[in-house]
Design a protein around this nucleic acid. Structure first.
Length: 487
RNA sequence: GCUCCGGUAGUGUAGUCCGGCCAAUCAUUCCGGCCUUUCGAGCCGAAGACUCGGGUUCGAAUCCCGGCCGGAGCACCA
């Protein structure tokens, strides 16, 4: 039996329209990256497809190694808004410790969890040799006592941990009696939480409880969490719950960006190496937003990538191609010359050039650029010139180069045919009284001069002809700052 | 060490569960050509892949076994 090729995301197994509940559960220890956007887009897309509920859950239960960043909570909300996704519910795991503690107590009472005092290495030895550790057989009563003492601060950091009892002889060592809570006498960055807790749930525990509590029907997550289902399955079994349907995807690498870790990035930002989390050199959502990548392009890109457990190594080119399709028809055209060189032209009368704002949409009208007898050319173009070179200043007139230093030329008519005959290039230019433009790009910052009209395009995407698409980020009397999108 | 996944063109994907319609889809990339007062867009054309070896079968990208390669888990990180 053959199926029709499915456009977009494949149907979700067992999904019923109106009943699907899915979540995206980041640790807000840094802003969303292109990698995280996969989860943001795909989960929300499925929910939309099935008219279900979408939950944003902040898994912010580590005050230490992956300590949440206070601003990042809002950044996530903001990025979702940008993506056009309104979560039906936003949950903070750090608000829900009482729930986790209740279930912990319940499991202890059932004899399915115990307080373990082994040092890390010791437990590993027992576990690796399929031996129960000395604490495994404590009675529920004793465990409860220890647990209360843990919560009351009776033990120091690392001294005790609550484990879920699974099967100490399980053939897969990853399944054997895994840790559910640990002690860390640290405050939580959220003011509401602060010093309230010293016993923190670990991912597999908190996640297991939450996914059930929040009524999740389907979970899509990284394949690094593939074992979670089997581990958490013990809890679901003990409590008689049904596990959601799961799907996994592999790692996403991006050619253009090297390896980034949130912690080193943070240091680099603090050290001023990057201007912030939205520095155009970074693979964060905030950065690509600022660069003028459209949410729709990102969504399409992620949806087309789909869900596969294979690790993928993607190129920004595909995302750019997607974005270009959206942005090209909208973007007004302007001249921007990088590393400008002044060209003086003999034999011309002052005039006004009127290049169209858009090459295929004449209704948009034209820019007006006054020209006396001097213009600015891009340094790159000038380097290729020789004396006698024929060239055309786009939407102006032809010039023949008569001197290189200083750069001078003479008027050479307005005929395009003549230019073609002479095999001249058409190049862009800028008026000598143009506005300084700073372009911030993934490859670093560039300086140049652009038409004054650019200043009217704040927050818009424009195309600098023969240069690329940019988002106009800031405009002041003396300067325009543009963020480079792509060619 | 133990345990789990996965491997389709440069890249990403469809097809794999339920073998034949797959001499393998789509997108991007690359290469030609057309068009264009942008090296953008558009149009036309072309190139490019089933990890390897066995097995089952009339027939295998699809099922089975093994190798190779890649990834992941076994943490008081998420």
């Amino acid at each position: 039996m053959k199926k029709e090729p499915v456009k977009g995301l494949k149907p979700l197994e067992g999904a019923v329209e109106g009943k699907v509940v899915m979540r995206f559960a980041p640790n807000p220890n840094g802003p969303a990256t292109l990698g995280s956007s996969r989860g943001m887009v795909v989960n929300s897309e499925y929910v939309k497809m099935y008219k279900g509920k979408f939950i944003l859950r902040f898994d912010d239960t580590d005050p230490d190694k992956k300590r949440p960043m206070l601003e990042a909570y809002d950044w996530y909300l903001d990025d979702f808004k940008w993506l056009g996704v309104e979560p039906d519910r936003v949950v903070y795991a750090s608000d829900r410790f009482p729930i986790y503690y209740d279930y912990a107590r319940k499991l202890i009472e059932m004899g399915k969890a115990y307080v373990c005092f082994c040092e890390g290495g010791d437990f590993k030895k027992f576990k690796d040799s399929k031996q129960p550790c000395p604490h495994r057989d404590q009675t529920p009563e004793v465990n409860l006592e220890y647990w209360e003492k843990m919560l009351a601060g009776g033990y120091e950091d690392q001294q005790a941990v609550l484990r879920i009892k699974t099967d100490i002889e399980h053939k897969d060592p990853a399944m054997r009696d895994w840790g559910a809570f640990r002690i860390r006498k640290m405050s939580h960055p959220r003011a509401e939480i602060g010093d309230k807790y010293i016993v923190w749930p670990l991912l597999d525990f908190a996640g297991a409880i939450e996914d059930h509590e929040l009524g999740m029907t389907h979970i899509i997550r990284g394949k690094d969490l593939m074992d979670s289902e089997k581990r958490q399955g013990y809890i679901y079994g003990y409590l008689g719950w049904e596990y959601p349907k799961t799907l996994h995807w592999g790692r996403v690498k991006i050619h253009e960006f090297g390896k980034f870790s949130t912690s080193t990035l943070r240091k680099d930002i603090e050290a001023g190496i990057y201007s912030g989390w939205d520095d155009p050199r970074l693979p964060t959502i905030r950065a690509i937003r600022r660069r003028g990548i459209r949410a729709e392009a990102l969504r399409k890109f992620m949806v087309e990538m789909g869900i596969g457990t294979t690790d993928v190594s993607i190129s920004m080119e595909s995302l750019y191609a997607e974005n270009r399709k959206i942005v090209d028809p909208e973007a007004n055209r302007y001249f921007f010359v990088r590393d400008p060189v002044e060209l003086e032209i003999d034999g011309v009368e002052p005039t006004v050039a009127k290049p169209p704002l858009h090459p295929t949409d004449s209704e948009r009208g034209a820019r007006e650029i006054k020209v006396e007898n001097k213009v600015l050319l891009a340094g790159d173009d000038v380097e290729k010139m020789e004396i006698g070179s024929m060239l055309r200043l786009k939407d102006l007139y032809n010039v023949e180069i008569t001197s290189l230093e200083p750069l001078q030329g003479k008027f050479a008519g307005e005929s395009l045919e003549a230019l073609k005959k002479a095999k001249g290039r058409i190049i862009h230019w800028a008026p000598v009284d143009g506005i300084p433009v700073k372009v911030r790009s993934p490859d670093g910052d560039l300086e140049g001069i652009g038409e004054c009209g650019i200043a009217k395009e704040l927050d818009k995407i424009v195309q600098f002809e023969r240069f690329g698409f940019c988002r106009i980020d800031a405009v002041s009397e003396e300067e325009v700052v543009a963020y480079f999108s792509h060619k």
